[in-house]
Nucleic acid binder design. Sequence first.
DNA 1: TTGTGTTTTACGACCTCC
DNA 2: GGAGGTCGTAAAACACAA
Length: 234
Amino acid sequence: MNNQNVNDNNLLLISRMYPNVYASSVPQQGLPILFDGLVLGLAVDSKPVRPRRRRKSKNVEMAQEGGDGSNGWFRKRKLSDEQVRMLEMSFGLEHKLESERKNRLASELGLDPRQVAVWFQNRRARWKNKRLEDEYTKLKNEHENVVVQKCHLDSEVLHLKEQLYDAEIEIQRLAQRVEGALSNSPISSSISVEANLTTPFFGDYQIGDDGEGYENLFYSPEYIDGLEWMSQLM
DNA sequence: TTGTGTTTTACGACCTCC
DNA sequence: GGAGGTCGTAAAACACAA
């Protein structure tokens, strides 16, 4: 299973446990705004969108008029690999483009300065998208880890509650047992003071964090009912 | 071959800064 | 006010499955 699948599975698991978590990350599609038969934009609930009037580009006009010097045939020009490589290098050094640098690059690559500017604009947009994507992935992973941690803690709490419940049942059971034993024993009151002094009163028993000590509490053979122990000490 | 989705180039509208 | 930025989008170019 690759990382993508692992991520998808985690996402599925979390989305089942917390159905609202990723709901806000789904892009909201608005209604298309039409102008002169063209889709000009999408209306989003919160913000009114003004229709953008689109002017014919110079290149398209040239193509329609047959004035681009190539038999009226216009094709959007894709930059060569070498041009893109040089532009990428330049972008790697600095994302912003001062006009001097723009003109120098344009003349070096045989491009219009406007093309260089547009390329940088688009490259910045791609870079920003990539960065946002990376940040989103990082935050998503962190969130998934926290959710998994929470699941573990929840199950630990559940386990401890079960243990506590069992212990309480056991206490009740033993208490009934001791009570029964005392009521059946005629010599229950003949316990020596000495024995009581050397044997810790049950309040002195230390019950550890793990619950150890409980079992000794009611098994003490010198267990004294009520406040009888006090009169023996006085 | 063709339909469809993605990437790339280009532009208009709008914003910010000097 | 102009230069250069972002944002949203159109449309060409490209990739690829059916």
